[in-house]
Design a protein around this nucleic acid. Structure first.
Length: 888
RNA sequence: AGGCACGUAGCUCAGGGGGAGAGCGCUACCUUGACACGGUAGAAGUCGGCGGUUCAAAACCGCCCGUGCCUACCA
């Protein structure tokens, strides 16, 4: 038969796009609702529409793809649901910035026009990340791509909001929230990033009413003093007992404010007296409630001081801080200023310093939702892998606070609440109302706030499958099999999905949560644009190929450890891809004349090499499956690497070369070709989830393959093919060859020199094994003349080695340096001696003999006997070398 | 402040109660009919420190040191 020979090296760029297109056009990744096989489903953690593929996405999606491809091949009806999320604040910021370049502000456009603009933008750029995922090889069902702002998903959002509102799990109220003056919106607690910042602690003197005395308060945010409505001390603080109930006069504003007692105050911090600003601090707000204090906002939405700030009205908050301190200094009422380092909250989107502000917002009452979500993990309806994350999950869920879900931006799901402008009634409804439910006035207006993006993401596992409709998809694919994600969104997303899933579907959204590491740079730092340490996955794919890149990510993805990505490592796996390519190339170059029909499969006479490789292969199959079933991606990658390179290529291919090259024995040749192609075929299948492109490319050239490898049966191990005897025999051969090579290497014998070798053993069985594999030993160790004997002869001027019951003699007359050889033997002998000493100590220890398990003792005894024998042989060798040196 | 990881060969990291491992790098040799993105061999580690449990600890426990991360309302 005519065989197409592969090119000399693998060039990923030539084949990747071809196969991406082929897979998608042929619908291999489509989930079928009429398919009755068992199902496997994953929903993608939706990337931001504004995003482009970064290392985190690459890792996350590589792991999902490995699972999806594995399960698809293993006979499951697989749904991998793709899509993107509308990323409210981020997207709005991006489009605003773009408009700003044209000198347009969103306010001049108006809400409706601006939103139209974003949709247009999304049409143009929103697909970028989706295409990048395709480049990575992600086998999502692209025909089902979803977007959190799609009509269906929006309906789900509304349904959930209205339901929760009617159950009083959503409420509206005045509380301190995190306000970003740049984005001009409220943020949830999670969206605030705390960062240790060097600052100052200012000590301010507040005069007491009708007195020459002062009370000194300490603060890091002096500008908020303009909104102070009390000074608080601890009720048990002897220093201040007299002051409780007295009145202080707020500097600048001249407002009379009470000195109150509250347990919250820490006697040992600062002066033990605290200024209280209920409108700009969470704790102060709560104190305000306890003591019925007025809350005075002193800042506007943009972070400038407002009308309540007296002379500082209109100033930016930081400018105001500076000027207030100057004012206190001038008056002599700034007692002191200390260096002080503390945590300051920043907006996770724009990094602006957050201003805690009293504001009317919408909240989700989380506790009633969190409790069943905690239960679900406790009773393993949701398994978190690795389990160590469970603790973090519980910790957070048990201390959870209400979730602020309203955002003062335009891009997002508008809150389905209407206010009656006549009677003030609030109407929350699935359908847009036309009139007030209470007074029937048609003078109503909709809430302008939109929902937190995470609110819609929380519904993702069922909203993408058509909920609130009762769809076939939900029936088949919900709960999903596994969620694969990074720990950074465990709270943002995972916890909330579990809450919402249980609440609205009555079932958890996924059975497993696999939490993977974060990808960092080589120094272990988080990759970020501002640090300039990002490695762009697409550049990597171009340079090394998607397969090498994916394999690297998988090999690095050990549970519970972050990934420090190095380009060198990717290069190493690029080499591996090339190795696979060349092993395939070799196979295809040597199957001329092969015809499967000529093989009588029931009567093949397998060689030792065949039995050995099939045995090893079947172990590899079993272990790979086990690794994938248990999310041990790195184990899977490593063991396949090891098997393909160091067993299949290094040994099997080398062992069978003579069989393939010898055209005389056509039966042997045919059988060998058969096994070779069979193993290669299986190896490609095993590797496919990790390296989809190269495996499909080679698969397409194989004579014993048909269709696409993506839908071919994943290998199943056959325990009948695991052959301990073959493995033991091959191990002996490998050891002997290794030892002869070692001698050659140590003695600096050029590879081209064909040495003579004698193998001596008294053991009959071993002798037979050696005889049977004489040619292999000769070929692999490059031996000219190999004698095997059970009669000991004097091999005087030869290097020696010992393997098991075999003594190896390599006569090196004229080449060998007796002194060098003696040194080499001594080194070996010393190693053995060390081991023997440890063993002897153990075996003479009464406690060891009486308490250790019998098989351990037995093993150690056998080892001891073997080592003694081995050492004796080395000592003989040493004596021979010494004798030879004396003779000279 | 609390919590969680991590500290194993020059580098990046697996492993895990009874033999110290891999990849890269390094050294020497080799264009041997798949592959120099290759082959063969080699050097290299008190498994962070100190205690404890155990017949046996790099692994389990405690403390300490170092690194990273997460959570938190002491102004």
């Amino acid at each position: 038969m005519a065989v197409e020979v592969l090119e000399k090296g693998y060039d990923p760029a030539k084949v990747e796009d071809k196969w991406s297109g082929y897979w998608i056009n042929n619908g291999f990744f489509k989930a079928d609702v009429n398919d009755l096989r068992k199902t496997f489903s994953i929903v993608i953690p939706p990337p931001n529409v504004t995003g482009s593929l970064h290392m985190g996405h690459a890792l996350n999606n590589t792991l999902q793809d490995i699972l999806a491809r594995f399960k698809r091949m293993d006979g499951f009806n697989v749904l991998w649901m793709p899509g993107t999320d509308h990323a409210g604040i981020a997207t709005q910021n991006v489009v605003e910035r773009e408009l700003a370049q044209k000198g347009i502000s969103r306010h001049s456009l108006g809400r409706e026009k601006f939103i139209e603009h974003i949709w247009k933008w999304r049409e143009e750029f929103g697909g970028i990340i989706i295409n990048q995922l395709k480049k990575l090889g992600a086998s999502c069902d692209w025909s089902r791509e979803r977007f959190t702002m799609d009509e269906g998903l929006s309906r789900a959002v509304r349904e959930v909001f209205v339901e929760l509102y009617h159950e009083k799990l959503i409420y509206r109220g005045d509380y301190i929230i995190n306000w970003c003056p740049r984005c001009q919106t409220a943020l949830s607690d999670l969206e605030v990033e705390h960062e240790e910042t060097e600052g100052y602690l200012y000590y301010l003197k507040y005069p007491l009413y009708n007195s020459k005395k002062f009370v000194v308060v300490a603060t890091t945010r002096p500008e908020t003093m303009l909104g102070d409505t009390a000074v608080a001390v601890n009720p048990n603080d002897e220093r201040y007992k007299k002051l409780i109930g007295k009145t202080a006069v707020l500097p600048v504003m001249g407002r009379e404010i009470p000195v109150i007692a509250d347990e919250y105050v820490n006697k040992d911090f600062g002066t033990g007296a605290v200024k209280v600003t209920p409108a700009h601090d969470v704790n102060d707000f709560e104190m305000g409630l306890r003591h019925n204090l007025e809350a005075i906002r002193v800042m506007d939405v943009d972070g400038r001081m407002n009308d309540n700030a007296g002379p500082y009205r209109g100033l930016d908050r930081f400018r105001c801080r500076k000027e207030i301190i100057e004012e206190f200094q001038k008056n002599g009422t700034l007692k002191k200023r200390e260096n002080y380092s503390h945590n300051i909250g920043h907006c996770y989107r724009c990094k602006m310093v957050i201003e805690p502000t009293l504001s009317k917002q919408w909240f989700v009452k989380v506790k009633p939702l969190a409790e069943p979500a905690v239960e679900a993990v406790k009773d393993s309806r949701v398994r978190i892998i690795p389990v160590s994350w469970e603790k973090t999950y519980f910790e957070w869920m048990n201390n959870i606070r209400d979730w602020c879900i309203s955002r003062q931006i335009w891009w997002g799901h508008r809150i389905p609440a209407w206010y009656c402008n006549d009677c003030g009634e609030v109407i929350v409804s699935k359908e847009d109302p036309t009139q007030c439910a209470k007074c029937m006035s048609s003078n109503i207006s909709q809430e302008t706030d939109v929902l937190d993006t995470w609110f819609s993401s929380a519904l993702w596992p069922f909203s993408t499958m058509g909920w609130p409709e009762h769809t076939r998809e939900l029936e088949l694919f919900y709960p999903t099999s596994v969620l694969v994600t990074g720990f950074d969104i465990l709270f943002f997303w995972v916890a909330r999905m579990i809450m919402m899933g249980i609440k609205f579907m009555g079932k958890v959204p996924f059975n497993d949560v696999y939490i993977h590491a974060l990808v960092r740079d080589i120094e272990g730092k988080k990759m970020s644009k501002s640090k300039g340490n990002v490695i762009d996955p697409l550049v990597i794919i171009e340079k090394y190929g998607a397969d090498a890149f994916r394999f690297t990510l998988a090999a690095f993805a050990a549970q519970g450890r972050d990934i420090k990505l190095s380009e060198e490592r990717i290069g190493g796996y690029r080499n591996f891809a090339n190795k696979v390519w060349n092993a395939s190339r070799f196979s295809l170059m040597n199957i001329e004349g092969y015809d499967e029909n000529l093989i009588d499969k029931d009567r093949i006479d397998y060689t030792l090499s065949d039995k050995w490789i099939m045995s090893r292969l079947n172990r590899a199959i079993e272990q790979t499956r086990d690794a994938l079933e248990n999310y041990r991606f790195n184990d899977g990658a490593h063991l396949l690497y090891q098997f393909v390179w160091h067993e299949f290529c290094d040994w099997y291919i080398e062992l069978i070369k003579p069989y393939l090259f010898d055209k005389a024995d056509s039966n042997l040749r045919l059988n060998t070709q058969h096994v070779l192609l069979g193993v290669l075929n299986t190896v490609l299948c095993l590797l496919h989830p990790f390296m989809p492109f190269i495996t499909e490319e080679i698969w397409s050239k194989l004579p014993n393959s048909e269709g696409s490898i993506t839908v071919h049966q994943y290998p199943k191990s056959d325990s009948n093919l695991i052959d301990e005897k073959a493995e033991a025999e091959m191990n002996l051969i490998i050891d002997i060859v290794g030892n002869i090579r070692n001698v050659r290497g140590e003695m600096n014998i050029p590879p081209a020199t064909q040495v003579e070798t004698f193998l001596y053993t008294e053991d009959r069985e071993t002798y037979d094994k050696l005889e049977r594999n004489k040619d292999h030993i000769k070929n692999l160790a490059r031996i000219g003349n190999l004698s095997i004997s059970s009669n000991k002869k004097e091999y005087k001027s030869s290097a020696t080695a010992v393997v098991d019951k075999v003594e190896i003699f390599v006569p090196l007359k004229g080449i060998i340096d007796f002194y060098e050889e003696e040194k080499r033997l001594k080194k070996e002998s010393d190693k053995i001696e060390k081991k023997l000493m440890l063993l002897n100590k153990k075996l003479s220890n009464e406690d060891f003999l009486s308490k250790a398990p019998p098989h351990v003792i037995e093993d150690e005894r056998i080892e001891n006997i073997n080592l003694i024998e081995k050492k004796r042989k080395f000592e003989e060798g040493i004596q021979r070398m010494q004798a030879l040196q004396r003779e000279r």
